[in-house]
Computed example of a mutant assay.
Amino acid sequence: MPTPKPVPGSILSPMTFMSVKGGEIVVGGKSENWTLLVVYRGKHCPRCKKYLNTLSAMHQDWVEAGFDIVVVSADSLEKAKADQEEFGWSFDLGYGLTESQMATLGVYVTEPLSPDEADGNFAEPGTFVLRPDGSQIIVAISNGPAVRPDLAELLDGMIFNKTKDRPHRGTV
Score class of each variant (00 low, 15 high):
2 P>D: 08
3 T>C: 03
4 P>H: 07
6 P>L: 11
6 P>I: 03
7 V>E: 11
10 S>K: 09
12 L>V: 11
13 S>T: 14
15 M>P: 01
15 M>C: 11
16 T>V: 14
16 T>I: 12
17 F>G: 05
19 S>H: 01
20 V>P: 03
20 V>K: 09
20 V>T: 14
21 K>P: 00
21 K>S: 15
22 G>R: 03
23 G>M: 12
23 G>N: 10
28 G>W: 08
28 G>D: 01
29 G>D: 08
29 G>W: 08
32 E>A: 11
36 L>Q: 07
37 L>P: 05
38 V>D: 11
39 V>I: 15
42 G>Y: 06
44 H>T: 09
44 H>P: 08
44 H>F: 14
45 C>P: 10
45 C>N: 10
46 P>G: 08
49 K>D: 06
49 K>E: 08
49 K>C: 02
51 Y>V: 03
53 N>R: 12
53 N>E: 13
55 L>E: 01
56 S>A: 04
56 S>F: 05
59 H>T: 10
61 D>L: 13
61 D>N: 15
63 V>K: 15
63 V>L: 14
64 E>S: 14
67 F>K: 09
67 F>V: 01
67 F>W: 07
67 F>S: 07
70 V>C: 07
72 V>G: 06
72 V>S: 03
73 S>Q: 02
73 S>C: 01
77 L>C: 00
78 E>N: 04
78 E>I: 04
79 K>A: 13
79 K>R: 13
79 K>W: 06
82 A>F: 02
83 D>A: 13
84 Q>I: 00
84 Q>R: 05
86 E>V: 04
87 F>D: 11
88 G>T: 05
89 W>D: 09
89 W>P: 10
89 W>V: 07
92 D>L: 06
92 D>N: 14
93 L>R: 04
94 G>K: 06
95 Y>N: 07
96 G>T: 05
96 G>D: 07
97 L>S: 04
97 L>V: 04
99 E>G: 07
100 S>C: 01
103 A>E: 15
103 A>N: 13
103 A>D: 15
104 T>H: 05
104 T>G: 05
105 L>E: 04
105 L>W: 03
106 G>T: 04
106 G>A: 10
107 V>P: 02
109 V>I: 15
110 T>F: 01
110 T>P: 02
111 E>L: 09
112 P>C: 05
114 S>M: 10
114 S>K: 11
115 P>I: 12
115 P>W: 09
115 P>D: 08
116 D>N: 12
116 D>E: 14
119 D>P: 02
119 D>L: 12
120 G>S: 14
123 A>I: 07
124 E>Q: 15
126 G>M: 08
126 G>V: 06
127 T>R: 00
130 L>Q: 06
130 L>D: 08
130 L>R: 05
131 R>C: 00
131 R>M: 08
135 S>L: 06
136 Q>A: 14
137 I>S: 12
138 I>L: 15
138 I>T: 12
144 G>H: 12
144 G>D: 13
146 A>W: 02
147 V>H: 02
149 P>K: 06
151 L>K: 08
151 L>V: 09
151 L>E: 10
152 A>G: 04
155 L>P: 03
157 G>W: 01
158 M>K: 04
160 F>H: 11
161 N>Y: 06
162 K>R: 15
164 K>I: 02
165 D>T: 08
165 D>R: 13
169 R>W: 04
170 G>F: 09
171 T>P: 00
